[in-house]
Design a protein around this nucleic acid. Structure first.
Lengths: 221, 221
DNA sequence: CTACAAAGTTAGGGTTACTTAACTTATTTG
DNA sequence: CAAATAAGTTAAGTAACCCTAACTTTGTAG
């Protein structure tokens, strides 16, 4: 049986490994889900028994093919709900994540397909993440760099925000930054790796931590 | 803490007593929720401790003011979801109940208010049940009789279907019966209390069990 | 009014998922 | 490379919710 907490663990493994790539530590999962390491160890044993993860004690965790398939299903639900809540019910960028988190575990494939259809089979969610299709395929994402790695003087557009926290979304909204907004990199400070950019004719600086989360694609070199 | 199973028990007490009126037996709750009597007894003890129900051993259950307030909140979520799923996502009459049942426990007041607004603050759900308002008030329902109690020769319109089972909804749809459809009572058979009616120029008979579930209001005597 | 059936409760036990505390393994650093 | 620290695991216990089986109460039919 795949219970709701199990779905959360599987999703956590997928999203953590999607960036860092490779094996996922139990510590990272515990932090993401805000549970004890003990709970994660115990769950790892169970998920491994169910064939959803590869797990060798002390050596980290990765998804099996079966686990990945499940993770993509869960992400499909989550991301379609996010888009739906913004486009149909008019929620804001910072509100959708928490709501989608609640709904995703209680949405049948039948219903999520209806939502998909109603939205016109979209490819990306409000954060720029690809929405897994019904068959599990991920739409191809454009070539991106982290804003923290971008080139001084070049122009970019925002393609993905790799974070869903309410606080960051509210901040980005408040400075007028949305998906597809143009960003020109003016300068970088090697002292703290912060970046200075121009957005809608205004200058803003981002800490490295934020700039790491902003995936951009080049418009003009 | 009000957990999801607790919400289900509270909702069951409300809906069972809404018709039968007065005290609710643990047996009826057990049947509705498909759990053992033991589980219901145990839960009754807990809900009573939380001040949500009046409970005296062997004497039946009723909601306290606090419990009723909670029940109305849950019904508000359920009924708004049902209407939303039909009106916005195009689900059918027989499909919405199960889906709403899943979603209702994971919908914040914030979100349900958005849905309410998006639907234009509707008063009745797809079955004709009143939708509790944000303040807990129930819209006033029209004067109704059960079709099983109706007068031969009179014309009525269907106002409420007091059942949500997929099978019945599918059947009613298949014979062209919807909310507000005109029904003329042609005859009653006292042998089995079945009724003969005319709907959209076709004659149909309903068993007493079905006729009991159909609330109608008089159009023409 | 007794006795029997139906309804309701209690006792004991199982599952899932979590906790803290104690322990083991792995990694880093002087 | 030894010792300290970080990461990971196991053990024992808790809470919610459910079950079956045994028992008690209630209501009713003879």
């Amino acid at each position: 049986m795949v219970t709701i907490p199990k779905e959360d663990y599987i999703k956590a493994v997928f999203t953590i490994s999607f960036n860092g790539n490779g094996k996922v530590s139990t510590k990272d999962i515990s932090e993401k889900l805000e549970v004890s390491n003990a709970a994660t160890s115990e769950m790892a044993r169970k998920l491994s028994l169910q064939g959803l993860i590869n797990y060798e004690k002390y050596k980290g965790i990765s998804l099996t093919a079966k686990g990945e398939k499940l993770a993509l299903k869960i992400l499909r639900r989550h991301r379609l709900w996010e888009l739906f809540l913004i486009q149909i019910l008019g929620l804001s960028w910072s509100e959708v994540h928490d709501q989608a988190e609640r709904l995703e575990h209680h949405t049948t494939e039948f219903l999520i397909d209806k939502i998909d259809e109603h939205l016109g089979f979209p490819e990306f969610d409000p954060h720029g993440h690809p929405i897994p299709r019904k068959n599990g395929q991920l739409p191809k994402q454009p070539e991106v760099t982290a804003l923290s790695e971008a080139k001084i003087g070049s122009s970019y557009k925002l393609v993905c925000v790799k974070d869903e926290s309410k606080e960051l979304m509210d901040y980005l909204t408040s400075i007028g930054l949305q998906l597809h907004t143009e960003i020109r990199l003016i300068n970088k400070l090697s002292f703290d790796d912060s970046v200075f950019v121009q957005i809608n004719k205004k200058q803003i600086s981002f800490s490295k931590k934020i700039a790491d989360k902003l995936s951009v694609s080049v418009i003009k070199n």
